[in-house]
């Protein structure tokens, strides 16, 4: 399968990428690692007139510290997220979720920013970013603006990134020393999750003081399990200790029904996976 014809530019600066985007508007598609875009183009679900490849903009790669935050370049690959020491130390959940994305080959090309901008409700990185209250830095003609994860994910394949804007980096408040786990339920290897749960907890001496939990594929965008989070404060970090809190994970959600499972099945799955994720994150 071969994509429809398109023109191609590979700018080397964000400014050049933005002006290409302004020039071509709706006819352009932005490409980061291309691991979601290229299958779409090959199946001709989309046929842009021009592809703007961000892959030559070096400033979009890498991880650095900025006070209480980690700043992750949008083009940082999943493989890098898994092995990067700063991510491990301060945002372990991102590392755990990135390790579960697709397969090794895709993780070598696919990027954190690309995955979030694509906003597939079954994508693994969105819920991890949401659980950590990440901020998305978006560049446009008038400068940059910062959008919290809770506003960034709008709907199915829809984010707060405007038509003439580009996601450049993701700022993540440090959660140094917090345990984390990403529990993903799939039927076959390297498949999209039917449901997945991203959990990170601050626990000491067997008690959870604070927990953050977000759900993948339980709606049209990543969702926080706020009732569970509240109920986990002060809970014992054991199966039984977190059970009642985890049972509230699907509260207020309206997950889709499809060939992989109906809505009620997904709700049940969310509670089970939340329990497993929280217990694993607490290291119990």
């Amino acid at each position: 399968m071969i994509p429809a014809k398109f023109d191609y530019v590979a700018p080397t600066s964000i400014e050049d990428a933005l002006s290409a985007l302004v020039q071509h508007g709706d006819d352009a598609k932005i490409m980061a690692g291309g691991q979601s875009l290229l299958p779409v183009l090959r199946m001709r679900l989309n046929a842009p007139e021009i592809v703007i490849d961000l892959g030559r903009i070096d400033s979009l790669r890498g991880v650095r510290e900025d006070g209480d935050a980690l700043v992750i370049g949008a083009l940082t690959t999943h493989a890098e997220m898994v092995t990067n020491d700063l991510v491990h130390q301060h945002a372990l959940l991102l590392s755990k979720a990135a390790a579960e994305v697709a397969d090794s080959q895709v993780r070598h090309r696919g990027t954190f920013g690309g995955s979030c901008a694509h906003a597939d409700p079954a994508g693994d990185m969105g819920s991890a970013a949401l659980a950590l209250d990440a901020e998305f830095v978006i560049a446009g003609a008038g400068g940059t603006r910062s959008v919290p994860a809770s506003d960034f994910f709008v709907d199915l394949f829809e984010t707060a990134i405007g038509e003439d804007e580009i996601l450049t980096e993701i700022r993540v408040p440090k959660r140094t020393g917090w345990g984390a786990h990403y529990e993903k339920f799939v039927r076959v290897a390297h498949q999209w999750p039917i449901v997945a749960v991203a959990a990170t907890v601050n626990a000491s001496e067997g008690t959870i003081s604070e927990a953050r939990v977000a759900l993948t594929n339980m709606g049209s965008k990543p969702l926080r399990a706020t009732a569970t989070e509240r109920a986990l404060a002060g809970a014992a970090a054991t199966e039984d200790g977190v059970r009642a809190a985890a049972d509230q994970a699907a509260e207020g959600t309206n997950p889709p029904s499809d060939l992989n499972g109906d809505s009620d099945y997904r709700k049940h799955l969310a509670t089970v996976l939340t329990r497993r994720a929280v217990v694993a994150a607490a290291g119990a």
Partner: peptide, 27 residues
């Protein structure tokens, strides 16, 4: 498979494995 699932087309790009049906030659 030509859908970036099967991995039969795996090659190394700068020493790391990639699915070459899911990379453009220009990249």
């Amino acid at each position: 498979c030509d859908t970036s699932n099967c991995g039969a087309c795996t090659v190394h790009l700068d020493g790391r494995s990639v699915k070459s049906c899911n990379v453009l030659a220009v990249q």
